[in-house]
């Protein structure tokens, strides 16, 4: 897919997204102004954002796949997940209180995350390659936050907004992948003591490692590889659940333990 935006437009839209992310306000979706914006344009803006954050001293620690369930891809009319980058500034520890004052529309998802011990290079990366290169897997809660007003949503704008990435929490119990049957791992998301979402990891492209392989192949399209030691979230097993100050969220996983976080002002 080709880019259509000028360098000046990419920089301007990146600044708009950066402002919305760092000062927590909603903006109109970018396609309102650039209706013919492509996915490649979205990734060009996201890449610009990543460079800016790294220049400001943020450390790139990994990536996340989004829109990895077939139902969600079908709903959006796309045949590939979107990806976004993760930095140390987005990480929050388990059993902590996550501030919502610096978020716009926070929602949580439970996911299986991979930590790699070898680099992964696309194109042609397979789920098997991902499993071979994996150090361990662990559960994660992702806090996504769309910066676009009124939940007006299109894939190009979301990709520019770094796949709605905001915060993430890795925790629970690390495991070797060869000791698990990843697709049948069950997960329950509880909010304030009540089960709000349930599913099994196969909801993510039949196998979470397949989502990581697709992520590596998208990186290859952008001329990038996934270095050893990366932290990669494979995409929400369940639908995203809105959270507000005072909410207590627990994600419980078969074989992988649980992660607990609270949300504050």
């Amino acid at each position: 897919m080709k880019t259509t935006l000028s360098r000046e437009a990419v920089v301007r839209l990146c600044e708009r997204v950066e402002g919305a992310q760092t000062r927590a306000y909603a903006i109109p979706k970018l396609t309102d102004e650039y209706p013919s914006m492509t996915m490649a344009d979205g990734y060009a803006i996201q890449t610009e954002l990543r460079k800016r954050f790294i220049e400001q001293g943020h450390k790139l620690i990994g990536w996340k796949a989004g829109l990895t369930s077939r139902a969600k891809m079908k709903q959006m009319g796309v045949d590939q997940p979107s990806i976004g980058f993760l930095t140390d500034k987005m990480a929050r520890p388990e059993n902590s209180v996550i501030s919502t004052a610096d978020l716009v529309h926070p929602r949580v998802e439970c996911e299986i995350a991979f930590v790699t011990r070898e680099k992964l290079v696309g194109p042609g990366c397979t789920a098997e390659d991902v499993l071979q290169a994996t150090d361990y897997v662990l559960p994660a809660i992702e806090v996504i936050d769309s910066r676009f007003s009124g939940f007006k949503f299109d894939l190009e704008s979301v990709v520019a907004d770094n796949g709605s990435s905001a915060r993430f929490v890795g925790g629970g119990r690390p495991r070797y992948v060869d000791e698990l049957d990843l697709p049948t791992i069950g997960a329950v998301l509880e909010k304030n003591g009540e089960i709000v979402e349930m599913g099994a990891a196969a909801a993510v492209m039949d196998h979470p490692a397949a989502a990581v392989a697709m992520l590596v192949n998208i990186l290859a399209d952008m001329g990038e590889e996934l270095p050893a030691g990366s932290f990669v979230m494979s995409g929400g097993i369940t639908a995203a659940v809105a959270v507000s100050p005072g909410d207590h969220v627990i994600a419980r996983f078969q074989e992988l333990g649980s992660i607990s976080v609270r949300f504050g002002e």
């Binding site: 697709p183 049948t184 069950g186 099994a200 990891a201």
Partner: peptide, 8 residues
């Protein structure tokens, strides 16, 4: 783990 066993 009857409670958390996934069903695919």
């Amino acid at each position: 783990d009857l409670t958390l066993a996934g069903m695919v």
